[in-house]
Amino acid sequence: MSERMKHSGLWATLFAAISLIWIFPIVLVLINSFKDKTYISQNAFSIPLGKAFVGMSNYTRGVERTNLIESFGWTVVVTVGSVALILLCTSMCAWWIVRVDNAAAKTLYLLFLFNMIVPFQMVMFTLSKIADMLSLNTPWGLWVLYLGFGAGLAVFIFTGVVKSIPQELEEAAMIDGASVPRIFFEIVVPIMRPSIISVAILQTMWIWNDFLLPYLTLDMSKYKTMPIAIQYLKGGYGSVDMGAMMGCLVLAIVPIVVFYIVCQKYIIKGVMAGAVKG
């Protein structure tokens, strides 16, 4: 027993060491966010002391130059709206597909499956033109685009879940005179709850971090999401104010870490659910 304990202590130490190496890149950004920008490029690994230490000025300059607070707001609007719309619409659609199960439903399902294997580059140019034509170049326009382009995976996961729900419950409710929407929201949705959370996590991770779709469709003069704001820090000729960049990176990572700590259990489950898409 004591032999095993000693062993697991050894392993714990080993993994603790690997973990420290693992988070080192993030710690390095944090350290450099307090360093003057000329010192960052000269020596990224030094501790910011004396002249090199600039306090919070990288943060204030970064926020000012990128308008990061506003971008944060737009990112929240885009992500929350899109995810809510995706959850509502695709869960309803998946239930309809499984229960109706006629030629139209089957075709629809195949189309959604097909959607999952098409890379974004295939549609990026035409999608951005259509978004302009239909005035979907706003954060709320993006809700529709994300619902459309991201429907595949969500419908796929939800149909899998609905297939495993026995119909007897719904039949009984119907005989009792419940309406179709009531059956869906009061019987089906509670059963689907775990998968709804998983899909919510997966879509949040995707949409929050997505760069190209909002970059090509949004009206850049009015709305920028956080990844776009950060990319804009890189000026012409490839020059980057690494000081401001470090401040922005830290501010971009903080909400993610908070989200991770709060929802960790669900995130791991969501990853597992997403893994079925093979």
Partner: peptide, 14 residues
């Protein structure tokens, strides 16, 4: 109500 919203967005977005 159930299938059309997703499908309409799917037509536009994909």
């Amino acid at each position: 109500v159930f299938a059309l919203p997703t499908f309409a967005a799917f037509v536009i977005g994909f």
